[in-house]
Design a protein around this nucleic acid. Sequence first.
DNA 1: TTATAATTAGACCGACCAGTCTACTATAAA
DNA 2: TTTATAGTAGACTGGTCGGTCTAATTATAA
Lengths: 190, 190
Amino acid sequence: MSKITTRDKLLDITFKEVYIYGYAGSSISNILKIAGIPKGSMYHHFPSKKAMVIAMIKERLTPKVREAFYIQIDDDSRAVDILSFLFKKISKNEMLIKHGCPLHKLMFEMGSLDDEITKLCHQEFIFLIENLAKLIDIGKQKGDIREEDSKSLAKFIIISSWGALSLAPNHSSKEQFLQDTKHILEYIKA
Amino acid sequence: MSKITTRDKLLDITFKEVYIYGYAGSSISNILKIAGIPKGSMYHHFPSKKAMVIAMIKERLTPKVREAFYIQIDDDSRAVDILSFLFKKISKNEMLIKHGCPLHKLMFEMGSLDDEITKLCHQEFIFLIENLAKLIDIGKQKGDIREEDSKSLAKFIIISSWGALSLAPNHSSKEQFLQDTKHILEYIKA
DNA sequence: TTATAATTAGACCGACCAGTCTACTATAAA
DNA sequence: TTTATAGTAGACTGGTCGGTCTAATTATAA
């Protein structure tokens, strides 16, 4: 029953367009053309392109990335298994494999160009790290891991995963990603 | 004596502009304004924006990146020392710390947008991997490393370094980079 | 000097950019 | 039925985009 609102449609398409073409490379006109929505409607809901992108980050990008980098675990999971499971989940996410992590991509592009967007992205980055650190802490109780600082380790894991996902799409694949992140697992095991 | 030619000036400024603003975010008009060069001169040397950027990649970006990711080593260097030295060198490169690896950034942006540029970037990526693998092979002879596949390891090291360098500039620093890559060194030592 | 090519110079073009404006319509409360 | 509000609609604006064009200038060689 619930119909898709103009706002929802705009945010959905803005996510895709900014994800693929970047902030600078995406255009309002094209987003509107795809959505079949006139300009006035968009500028009724958002005061500017930047405002729409910020709403998109909060309401689309952030939830997607949280979901992609999160896994449910049993209480008796070992840290190695948790990470192995996480990598397998990420590798199955075609979006991530093909275009990299949307948070990473936007953060990289906007780094020195816009403080507000950069700050927003960085907050989410911190959230991902802390979330993963919690998972590692749970796994650590099973004693199969020697690393003390879970946050530092979590950061390294996300950074490395992002790196592995950010290669040119022609040359990245599920198998390649798993191969590239294998080193992280071996490091944890050590 | 040798004066800077119009072409050289254009390539220098194009590198900076594309590095900071991205391919889509940079503009010919702005590059010309900064260079103090009229349009006709530029379009005499290059048929298009894309052609100028491709020349810039070959003649500016590639040499800079090769230099940044290369180190001279002694014949009796251990692999761990080689990498430790490399990370220290990278951490001293303010350009890399502030804006990430220009090759990585361009490759990430253009990934699914332009085959020619993507291919060019990827070739250089392969070159970096093979170069680093050679260094690792030399260090491996000293027997302080257990990894068999030097290329896979080299790829992982570059990917992870790129990831660590691609965080928002406000939150990246020499110290942070060394902290983030510390895990790689510990992995090698293991 | 003269002919030829290389380069510099910038006005100009149509397309597209983000954003504004006014008019219209749908909804719902009074 | 009236009035207010939320949302839809798209023509329009000033500015910038990449790229073209012709003319002027400079360098090279005969």
